[in-house]
Design a protein around this nucleic acid. Structure first.
Lengths: 205, 205
DNA sequence: GTCTATAAATCGATAGAC
DNA sequence: GTCTATCGATTTATAGAC
């Protein structure tokens, strides 16, 4: 445990502190409220110090999008463990909407903010086949494939079905976050359930 | 035609010029790029002049949201004229997605930007029964009612069905605008069509 | 490493001359 | 009615002292 290691560790710790403070600011006041000064105040360092760990505000934001996306995937993990594929679709959808409501600013940051931040993650999702099953959309595609193989769903492209299921749920979540009073008042779990029922009925063989 | 009338007219004209310039800026660079200075430059007046017609930047934004929403409704009018109710649902959905793609920044401004701007419009939509059939969501609710009365759709609350149809289409549009490459590459008309088919199949009696 | 101090830019909005 | 001039606050990011 030399001096170098301790320094490395402390540096990483401060980096994490920065990210945690930034995440807290976004969670409380939204992405636009994220400024270097506020982060610096929160961790009780000077703004200049932040630039020793991140090149710019955008770099912090991008890291937060990555972390946020991981949190979303983590939140959906239990649902992906459900054995019955049809029940799994429901469970995944429920978990997805739960996350959107529980961490609205994180959800917003990932999917509704600047395309500059969301796109890199999404494109990685599209191109990176290194961790099949570990990404959110793969949960859905895999499950849809299972339902297709069992003849429960009509023969349609699995990726298309998954994309439509996803985007439909996103529609509810996004509308709720952009206009909390209409057309969905209160919790979106019920409309989410109704939507999934309709969609799955429409997809059945 | 006295002097007073001319002055009134000229004042109204300048007001329209301001709104048009603001709309152009948003269409080109998005809502965040809308600043009083840029508007002033565009119409070749000083920033101070803007405050003779609008109290604040927010007031201009709110007016643009109103205008944008009207443009959306106008774009959907032809679809609402379709006689067959089932074909009308498709036509309304198509027109909706068309608008989102044709005027992405307007769509964004209405539904995906600050809730402060969207909500007043949406709440008006919710509470104002003065112009039934003249608002976008009413196009859909009325059509759904027709399909319910004819026994084509299963007996579910018309408002709920309409809200789910709308939010599902919004999901495609919003995802496209926030992440243009994934999961919907290119035009969203095809996935929109596929989604509507699945939904309507799931809604059939 | 961390700070202070500050540059350089941008913003909304206003006061007061004309 | 319109302008000039500017206030006051905000931002990201950096230079240079310690």
């Amino acid at each position: 445990m030399g001096t170098a290691e301790r320094r490395e560790r402390q540096k990483a710790e401060l980096r994490d502190q920065i990210l945690a403070a930034a995440a807290a600011i976004i969670a409380r006041d939204g992405f636009d409220a994220l400024t270097m000064r506020k982060i610096a105040d929160a961790i009780e360092y000077s703004p200049a110090t932040l630039y020793l760990h991140f090149a710019s505000r955008d770099e912090i934001a991008l890291e937060l999008v990555r972390n946020g996306f991981e949190a979303l995937v983590r939140h959906m993990m239990p649902a992906a463990a459900e054995t019955d594929p049809l029940a799994r679709v429901y469970a995944i959808g429920r978990a997805y909407l739960e996350f959107a409501q529980a961490e609205p600013q994180t959800y917003r940051l990932i999917f509704m903010e600047d395309e500059r931040f969301a796109s890199p993650i999404m494109l990685q999702l599209k191109n990176d086949a290194s961790n099949p099953g570990d990404t959110a959309i793969d949960f859905l595609v895999t499950t849809v494939r299972e339902l297709l193989e069992r003849g429960i769903f009509r023969p349609l492209p699995a990726e298309m079905i998954a994309a439509l299921l996803w985007s439909s749920l996103h529609g509810i979540a996004a509308l709720k976050l952009s206009c909390s009073q209409y057309p969905f008042e209160g919790d979106i779990a019920a409309p989410g359930e109704a939507l999934m029922e309709i969609l799955i009925r429409g997809l059945r063989a």
